[in-house]
Design a protein around this nucleic acid. Structure first.
Length: 286
DNA sequence: CACTTGACCTGTCCGC
DNA sequence: TGCGGACAGGTCAAGT
């Protein structure tokens, strides 16, 4: 799914589009996607949108919140085109993601102005919880999250001490462990290792302080660049407007196997680490 | 406890 | 064209 930059992109989009609206109606097309009493949402006003690591939250009036995890293929698309207009054969939707709902739409939120928020998720791994705002902090998944690289007090020493808890794990795998460091997934872990010029297979315990400093900088840089380019779209990610992100045009290694390294022209390799595709430059990364 | 692998789902792409 | 297998942005549970 969406990693930190993708969720951040959606957060900003929703802040601009749905804050202040009231939920008028709700359609749950896949019951396993939504946990909690959806009827409680009717008549509630959207007050605030927030993000923690890869989790997206929507605070509502009446001490109620929606907490989303998009996992691999989740999308949150806000459309101002009325479903009825599209069904009537009106002009094509302005959403680049295509007409909504579609076969992967799991939940539809309909607002006071008749605009709609579609929670799409092809693989059905994603979830949304309806929960009192005061209980969001007690969600087990959120409690288990480690520090985020974009927090103000995230130092290289924090990165070192957290990832060093997995001394025999490849450093790229440890970087993706949300209990150690949160928000980094498969794309940005690979990009961070490239930026740091560190082979993703290196055991965490073997890194020097200078290499921890480079990895710290690499993680922050790759996530920041991801946000700057509106996220990464391999196949599924779109922002709240339904548009793809452009970060992969700027990626150095992710999905570039067989292509020349943008720094040294060596051929980018693809390997498997902990079951996940991993990309690296065999010359730049040691 | 540390680490790896398979499961959860659906869809697409690639080789035979 | 059809079919099987591998693979896909993430987490969990169960295995070693």
């Amino acid at each position: 799914m969406p990693e930190l930059p993708e969720v951040e992109t959606i957060k900003v989009g929703l802040q601009n589009r749905i804050v202040g609206l009231t939920i008028k109606q709700l359609e749950v097309l896949n019951s396993k996607t939504l946990e909690g009493n959806s009827q409680n949402l009717l008549g509630k006003k959207i007050l605030n949108i927030w993000r923690k690591a890869k989790v997206l939250g929507v605070d509502l009036s009446g001490n109620l919140s929606l907490v989303f995890h998009l996992k691999m293929t989740g999308q949150l698309i806000h459309s101002k085109v009325k479903t009825g207009d599209m069904l009537a054969g009106g002009h094509p939707t302005q959403d680049m993601a295509g007409p909504m709902p579609n076969s992967s739409t799991r939940v539809i939120f309909i607002f006071s102005d008749d605009s709609q928020l579609y929670f799409n998720d092809q693989r059905k791994f994603g979830w949304v919880k309806v929960i009192p705002t005061t209980e969001v902090g007690s969600i087990k998944f959120i409690q288990g999250l480690g520090p985020e690289p974009l927090e103000a007090n995230f130092s290289w020493e924090v990165l070192k001490s957290q990832l060093s808890k997995r001394k025999n794990q490849p450093v790229k795998v440890a970087l993706m462990d949300q209990s150690l460091i949160s928000g980094v997934g498969n794309i940005y872990a690979a990009e961070a290792c490239f930026d740091a010029e560190i082979d993703p297979r290196r055991k965490a315990a073997t890194l020097s302080d200078q290499e921890w400093q480079r990895l710290h900088r690499g993680a922050i840089r790759s996530l920041t660049d991801g946000i700057k380019h509106g996220g990464s779209s391999r196949a599924h990610f779109v922002n709240a407007e339904g548009e793809p992100g452009l970060f992969l045009d700027y990626a150095f290694v992710y999905q570039r196997n067989g292509q020349p390294c943008k720094k040294c022209q060596s051929i980018i390799q693809k390997i498997t680490l902990a079951g996940r595709g991993t990309y690296l430059c065999p010359n730049c990364q040691k």
